[in-house]
Design a binder for these strands. Structure first.
Length: 238
DNA sequence: ACATTAAATTCGA
DNA sequence: TCGAATTTAATGT
């Protein structure tokens, strides 16, 4: 247990392996990339830890290098009043909070790690600097806003679906979004428990649904994860 | 809630 | 450094 363990615990400044999993980095030219790499912070977060809190002033634009985060308005919402809603699951390659950074507001949701994860962030000032000078970066942000809007509209429908199979199916499909989460391969690493937290169902129920989806040929259930065989079928599951 | 199986960790050479 | 033994985590019913 040497080289790898030591590296895992010490190397949490950005390493090259982290840079590879930042999808928009390739769109930047050399000087832009240089500044980003210099400003980039990479941290490891433990399960349950909050990456950002409702009401906190915006400081960073965040992305998931590896792991699984939950975007929600639950857990001691500082502004009070509402009941817990999970807006989205966030997984490898996903960047979030651009809307908040753009408007320079306070966060309107909590981001909580569902498992040990590696999260990267660039300061809001760097984000704005990139917006001001890189067309490629602008395209990425625009794509991101557009796709996420589509996801939220989809999420509204999910809430209305009483059928848990369909809810699980569409939540999974959302996590497999190839543009928003380019780091997810064909196998999504997520436990049935974690999926339960995300969808708002018990693990047992999730397990049933996954087996049903597997019978339908949409996915294959694997230990510690799910392999998507037919994304379209997942999306359209009824 | 429980039994089974996979993975991660520890331990001894 | 390897693999067997033990512990922990995830799954299926």
């Amino acid at each position: 247990m040497h080289a790898s363990a030591v590296r895992a615990s010490l190397s949490r400044g950005a390493g090259p392996q982290d840079l590879d999993s930042i999808p928009w980095l390739v769109r930047l030219d050399a000087p832009e990339r240089k500044r980003v790499v210099a400003d980039l912070r990479v941290v490891e977060v433990q399960p349950g830890e909050l990456v950002c809190r409702i009401g906190r002033p915006v400081s960073y634009w965040f992305g998931v290098i590896d792991g699984l985060l939950k975007m929600s308005n639950d857990a001691a919402a500082a502004g009070g009043s509402s009941f817990p809603i999970t807006f989205a699951g966030l997984t490898s390659g996903g960047w979030f909070g651009e809307g908040t950074v753009l408007k320079n507001e306070v966060y309107r949701y909590n981001i909580q790690a569902l498992r040990k994860s590696v999260v990267a962030g660039i300061p809001a000032s760097t984000f704005h600097w990139l917006l001001d000078r890189s067309i490629g970066f602008n395209r990425f942000v625009m794509m991101q806003l557009n796709e996420r809007l589509g996801q939220f509209i989809g999420a509204r429908e999910i809430d209305r679906l009483s059928q848990s199979d369909a809810r699980v199916a569409r939540s999974l499909a959302a996590l497999f979004h190839p543009l928003l989460y380019p780091g997810v391969g064909e196998v999504l690493r997520i436990t049935q428990q974690e999926l339960g937290y995300l969808v708002g169902l018990g693990r047992q129920r999730v397990n049933r649904s996954l087996l049903t989806l597997q019978d339908g040929g949409a996915i294959r259930v694997e230990y510690g994860g799910v392999r998507v065989l037919d994304l379209e079928r997942l999306r359209r599951w009824v």
